[in-house]
């Protein structure tokens, strides 16, 4: 009973804060809401018997990636950058098509989705996951490490002020 209450509470938290991310004009509020949404998803992972993954979700997403987002937003002083409301037709099409897509998704999930409960508990502690990771997925694991290295180098090259950057011309758009 209490697990159902936890599920509905955190599902509501995840959805409401995700909606704030989509609708709020201020990117700082959006980023903080996304953190709340990710935290609620970590609770979902606990309910799905994957506490190890829940901790990783909070450490990696809420603790590292979203801090990076906030850091960039604050560093570029974007919090005052309100978007002008232009192109109403495209906006309308965006809302309606995504709503239609979502309704279709939920309809087919409810119609063809899995409805029977899984049998028995699911063991997903760090030991099991680690052994499987380094037995079956060692090659993708190494590939991911190379990918991360490439990402570090790429991020440094893209964001480093190596070349001469022209001074701001005209009025500052901030």
């Amino acid at each position: 009973m209490i697990t159902f209450a936890i599920f509905f509470f955190f599902a509501a938290v995840a959805v409401i804060f995700a909606a704030v991310v989509v609708l709020h004009r201020n990117p700082v509020v959006g980023a903080l809401s996304l953190v709340a949404s990710f935290f609620a998803l970590a609770v979902m992972y606990v309910l799905l018997e994957a506490p190890f993954l829940a901790a990783l979700q909070v450490i990696v997403y809420a603790g590292a990636i979203m801090v990076l987002f906030l850091f960039v937003i604050m560093l570029l002083n974007l919090q005052h950058q309100e978007e002008p409301r232009t192109r109403p037709v495209q906006q309308f099409l965006g809302y309606t098509s995504s709503a239609a897509f979502g309704l279709a998704l939920i309809y087919y999930l409810a119609k063809f989705g899995v409805t029977k409960l899984p049998d028995g508990p699911f063991v997903s502690d760090a030991r099991t996951v680690g052994i499987r990771m380094f037995e079956a997925y060692i090659f993708p694991f190494e590939m991911v490490s190379i990918l991360l290295l490439a990402a570090i180098v790429g991020a440094l090259i893209l964001s480093g002020r190596t070349g001469a950057i022209p001074p701001p011309t005209g009025e500052n758009k901030l």
């Binding site: 190890f52 909070v58 809420a62």
Partner: peptide, 15 residues
Amino acid sequence: NIGILLIFALASMGV
């Protein structure tokens, strides 16, 4: 059984 990971997860929220 994930003690230390829980600590790092919550500590990372401190920022």
